[in-house]
Amino acid sequence: MGLLRYAIRRFLQAIPVVIGIVTITFLLTDAIPGDPVSIMLGPSPSAEQAAEIRAKYGLDRPLYVRYFNYLADVLLHGDLGRSLYYNVPVSQKIMERAPVTILLLLSSYAFAIAAAIPLGIISAKRRNQPTDHVSRVVALVGVSTPSFWIGLMLIIVFAYHINVLPATGLVLPWAAPASVEGAQTQLDVVVASIEHLLLPTLSLGTLQMAAIMRIERSSMLEVLGQDYVRLARAYGIPERTIVTKHAFRNAQLPVITVVGLQLTSILGGAVLTETVFNINGMGRLIITAINNQDFQLVMGTTFVFGLTFVVGVVLTDLSYAYVDPRVSYDEAD
């Protein structure tokens, strides 16, 4: 029950953060120069047409009225408004694009974690050896290189010169075979999806992989230097057993923290990655909304990204108990 009470308390504490996200996003979006009505109707709309559009979307109301109406719609009804550019509910566009971005984020995280943890462990076990030096250089390059530049280089090499992987677009693995060019079975669709995912996954996941690997290495080095590890070695316990059963789990708390906090960079990187690889996900949707001054869509997509990060941070806190039983969630703590 301690964990359940803590989870409820943490989610309740996240409510003011969500309200802050809505408030800041609303005010910044309203401060964007330009007139969305001019974009919708052209540079010289008639006064009647402009007034009709402003009344339809509530743009003729005072700022504080629009803010409290929007806040109430979001928090009480889950209504993110109606897109000015697409003329459909914002939630509808988000539901259309979200699966693409979720697939890209999950594949990037899977690549980052699967590559970073083994490399971090190997680097820690072979400290100051050639393997460690190579791993550290790879991590340094990874955290120093923008994801969009990596994406462009991958396109030049693997799509243009070698021509073995597609450079643009994304195929969803659950799409119908009839909607995918050259696919006859669902297995063909999955294979096409993997081929389209490889380059954007490497582009978006490299930064996360490098950051996680550095933390994994540092954490493992710290744990491997603890007294109980030295005692285990003195008793003749094999090094593999020490690493996998004694050191690994205790070294994961910092790694879990950085994995949760990497949500900010991976969500931001998704915007650039989707633009580079011409993927119609949430990132491209935000760019389209900004270019067309679609205030409702900008606020809706930003709110969803912010809410995703808040939920990720809370889940990161809750995962500590599973990794380290010493973590307590009693009220007194």
Rank of each mutant, 00 (worst) to 15 (best):
L187A: 14
A175Y: 05
A14V: 12
E222T: 06
L172H: 00
A211E: 03
E96F: 11
A175Q: 13
M282V: 15
I162F: 04
D73A: 15
A234E: 07
L28N: 08
N291D: 09
M209W: 09
A289H: 01
A211T: 14
S203W: 03
I237H: 06
L4Y: 10
F295S: 11
L204E: 07
D324H: 00
A178D: 12
Q186Y: 15
V171T: 14
H196V: 08
A112C: 11
V298R: 03
T131Q: 01
Q226F: 03
A167S: 14
V310W: 06
I279F: 04
S319C: 09
Y67S: 03
L63G: 01
G20A: 08
G169S: 04
L59H: 02
S44Q: 15
I94R: 04
T301D: 03
Y322T: 08
A139T: 04
I113A: 08
M95K: 12
T201I: 09
E181I: 13
M282P: 02
V258I: 15
V17M: 14
A247S: 06
T29Y: 02
I279G: 05
L261W: 10
L207T: 06
D294G: 07
V17W: 11
V90M: 07
V164I: 15
A159W: 07
A192Y: 01
K93M: 15
V298E: 00
V143A: 05
R136M: 13
F303R: 01
P118V: 04
E52C: 00
E195N: 11
V143K: 02
E216S: 15
S328P: 00
E96P: 10
L140W: 08
H133P: 00
L272D: 00
L154Y: 10
V100F: 10
A7I: 08
D30P: 01
L154V: 10
P99D: 14
V134Y: 07
S203T: 00
R249C: 00
T101V: 10
A167F: 05
T308Q: 03
A7R: 06
Q49E: 15
I194S: 07
N250S: 11
G300K: 00
I24G: 05
M95F: 15
A247W: 03
M1F: 11
I94P: 02
Y322H: 01
A51V: 03
P254G: 08
R230W: 08
